[in-house]
Amino acid sequence: MGEVLILIGCPQIPVQSPLVLYIADFLQDAGHRPVVAANPSAKQLIKTSDPKSHYVSEYKDVDKTIGELADGTVQYPLIISLIHNDAGLTYTSTTSAVAPKTLLISVLFGEHAYDLAEEIEYPTEKVVAPVTHNTRPLLTKLDEVLEWAVLKI
């Protein structure tokens, strides 16, 4: 059972936490172990929604995880990054640079989603919708990309 990393940023946009559980559920069904890299507040929101860890198998500190990827002490065949601000883009760009062999999916949401997507210069598959409260516009493309990604790893 392979591990897949879900990288998340600041939890201020409401769709982020449900997207994490949705992606984790998909990964579990596909036989993968979802690991979430987050800052403490984002992690706490997910843990509150999934107190018995039915969806997320493990949590890691986001900065420490990028350090481990840079050192080569951890590797993931697939990383799914949730982005809604410049900091999220910066973290994901760093992840791409330190883990160039990893298949990287960038899920962009929030009111600046299209602008952020245009700034991406690293290799990635993008799922983009400028939503804050409604996950639905993201889900069809997300399903399609996740199904493709788990077949590739």
């Binding site: 600041c10 900065d63 601000n85 410049d86 900091a87 999220g88 883009l89 910066t90 760009s93 760093t94």
Partner: peptide
Amino acid sequence: EKALIGVPPLIIGIANEKLIYAYTKPCHGT
């Protein structure tokens, strides 16, 4: 002892023997 977060090219400056660099936090930007 911490990995720098940043979009390449990552520039670190030096002035008056001090380091000048970008420090990004998820909720507070750069």
